[in-house]
């Protein structure tokens, strides 16, 4: 019997599912709220009840990332690893790594000031999609179809001027059916997939009301998801793909703290159980 620690900052049904599955297959669980946990440079593993392995499940990316750094400082095995979380949490780092590993991904342009972004777009042309390099659930992802829209976005970013506002991530607008595909990988193996159908708008995020539908994992999806997972450093990931009319499947995002509530209801495999078993085997290796 092993002990698994689930780190959270907001207890969602996913974390409760993980706890339940771990208990049902005979493992002890400990639920740890990152918001009320303190660490210092003299902290030792024995100061905490962290079990044999930690599943980091914070909804806040920066909280989860920094908590993971603390756990790795304590030499506790944690999923996902800091390096994986760090790369997947930044769309630019993730896109560069996908491309570096020859995984089909939409062509993306980067600029590091509003003036440079404007010059870049003059060369590339419209339409494009602008995405914040940090952020999820489709926030701030906008299609840009003309100069007026781009000027408005640049002006707002110059006013708010948060550090990430200076990074312009401009991606080709993929011609595709009004849906994308989410594949959950555990240890580089795809375990379940769903179509996320747009509820009318441009975005297909479940958090924004997109309609999930079970998707059969084709050999091509399996191969691309596995390669994308390996490129990021493995662990438990959500690989997002689009069906491009010209290029076929392209991977446009890899998610670190994957949400699976909707997919778990319809998937043939028991997703939380697979996650728990992977975590336990991860430390046995």
């Amino acid at each position: 019997m092993s002990k698994i620690c689930i780190v959270f900052d907001r207890l969602r049904s996913e974390e409760k599912m993980l706890q339940k599955e771990a208990s049902e297959i005979g493992h002890d669980t400990v639920m740890l709220d990152a918001k009320i946990t303190q660490v210092n440079t003299d902290s030792k593993e024995e100061d905490y009840d962290l079990g044999d392995v930690v599943l980091e499940r914070c909804v806040s990316y920066f909280r989860g990332l920094h908590f993971t750094a603390s756990l790795e400082f304590l030499d506790i095995p944690v999923l996902n690893k800091f390096d994986v979380a760090s790369i997947c949490g930044n769309k630019m780092f993730m896109t560069l790594l996908l491309k570096k590993n020859n995984i089909p991904t939409p062509k993306t342009h980067f600029s590091f000031s509003s003036q440079s972004a404007a010059e870049n777009i003059e060369k590339v042309g419209y339409p494009l999609v602008i995405k914040p390099v940090i952020g999820s659930w489709g926030r701030g992802v906008m299609p840009i179809k003309d100069k007026d829209t781009m000027d408005a976005i640049s002006e707002i970013r110059d006013i708010t001027d948060s550090p990430h506002d200076r990074i312009y991530y401009l991606q080709e607008l993929i011609k595709r059916p009004p849906r994308d595909i989410r594949v959950i990988t555990i240890g580089d193996n795809p375990v379940a997939a769903m179509y996320r159908k747009s509820s009318g708008g441009f975005k297909t995020n479940i958090a924004l009301g997109a309609d999930p539908e079970l998707c059969e994992i084709t050999p091509e999806m399996e191969d691309m998801a596995s390669k994308a997972s390996k490129a990021m450093g493995g662990g438990i990931l959500g690989i997002d793909m689009m069906e491009d009319d010209k290029q076929g499947l392209v991977v446009h995002e890899v998610n670190n703290t994957v949400e699976f509530k909707g997919l778990a209801r319809v998937a043939q495999k028991n997703i939380p159980k697979e996650m728990v078993e992977f975590a336990i085997n991860y430390v046995r290796k």
């Binding site: 900052d9 907001r10 918001k35 909804v59 806040s60 990316y61 920066f62 909280r63 949490g89 940090i134 952020g135 999820s136 659930w137 926030r139 958090a207 959500g238 998610n255 670190n256 703290t257 994957v258 949400e259």
Partner: peptide, 11 residues
């Protein structure tokens, strides 16, 4: 009081 949704929230 629950935390409000942050800019970095989500997967």
């Amino acid at each position: 009081q629950a935390e409000s949704v942050g800019e970095d929230w989500g997967e």
